[in-house]
Amino acid sequence: MTDFDAVLQSRGLSRYHGQGESLVRAVDEVDLDVPAGQTLAIMGPSGCGKSTLLHLLGGLERPTDGEVWLAGRRIDHLNERGLARMRRRSIGFVFQNFHLVEELSARENVELPALLAGRSSRAARRRAADLLERIGLGDRTRHLPWELSGGQRQRVAIARALANEPLVLLADEPTGNLDTAATIEVLRLFADLRAAGQTLVMVTHDERVASTADRLVSMHDGRFVGDTRLAGGTGRLGDLIGLDG
């Protein structure tokens, strides 16, 4: 049933709340195929179901109906332990509000997923140091989140999401709390990930951010209403940098 060229898929994916006249179709029979290495942006008005869809794809919420497949394996029917294991090993999450542990340093925040997945302390520390160096924060490894700028905190959150080399990175409004300069910092990092072949699905309200993707899907009332291939990539990032002066 699944297309093995796609790393992430959904079929008839639905999430309903309430019943009768109060029924809300947050996500309504969504079919989606995300090929490996693609950067996909999902846009739509507030309340259209974008974030709910992302949570369903990543196993943070369970669907009312439908299926989710990751790398050819159906995941929506896994038990809680199986979902937790899948999220640790195969999915990286990036959120608008960073969700860093305030008492931990940048390095410790990035180490945490690897430790939870069973890596040794030495391996987790080495991976965290490599990632922080890669994102330009090699000199901030001991800094606590409150000592970092918004763009730096989001880059740490992205590094944490990459700690276990996920098949898919899911980003929910990753630039929603950032100014233009910090947004460009994050988009530069996403461009590097795209060039390295990382599969990325991001929910965004910012048309400038969405335009850097390979593909744009529009949502309204829980359904897809548009699917457009984009030029994406460094060309649009260059336009953003131009806007920043």
Rank of each mutant, 00 (worst) to 15 (best):
L100S: 07
R15S: 03
H77Q: 14
L131A: 11
R81T: 15
A123S: 14
V7S: 00
L56A: 10
M202D: 04
A171N: 01
D139C: 04
A171R: 05
R107Q: 15
T2D: 00
R85T: 12
S105N: 02
L23E: 10
G59C: 13
T228G: 07
L200G: 03
D33C: 07
I75P: 05
L170D: 07
R15G: 00
E207K: 06
S211P: 07
R142E: 14
G82H: 09
P45W: 09
G245A: 12
D214V: 12
R142C: 02
P145C: 07
R223C: 08
V217D: 02
A157S: 11
R229E: 15
P63A: 11
G20K: 07
L116G: 04
G138Y: 01
G92K: 09
L178M: 04
D221Y: 03
R107H: 08
G44C: 06
R140M: 02
V24L: 11
A231C: 03
A26K: 01
A171W: 06
L23I: 14
L70G: 10
A159T: 13
G20P: 10
G66D: 08
E29N: 12
R229C: 10
V217S: 05
P63W: 01
A117L: 04
R236E: 15
R74P: 10
S14W: 00
E207Q: 14
G82S: 03
R85Q: 15
L53F: 04
D172P: 08
S218D: 08
S22L: 12
L170A: 03
L13H: 01
L32P: 11
Q9P: 09
S120N: 04
E165N: 15
R140A: 12
R194H: 15
S51N: 06
I75Y: 04
R107G: 10
S121A: 14
G72T: 09
F98V: 06
R155D: 05
S149L: 00
N164P: 10
D5L: 12
G238Y: 00
P145L: 05
D3M: 02
A114I: 07
S121H: 13
G118C: 01
G197L: 10
S90Y: 12
A231K: 13
L60F: 10
F98E: 00
V209R: 05
R126A: 15
V203T: 06
A128T: 09
E165F: 08
L162D: 09
W69G: 06
F4W: 05
V225F: 02
G58R: 11
T175D: 07
V110G: 05
G58V: 09
G136K: 03
L100C: 11
D192E: 15
A159I: 11
L189K: 12
G235L: 10
S149R: 02
V225I: 15
V34R: 02
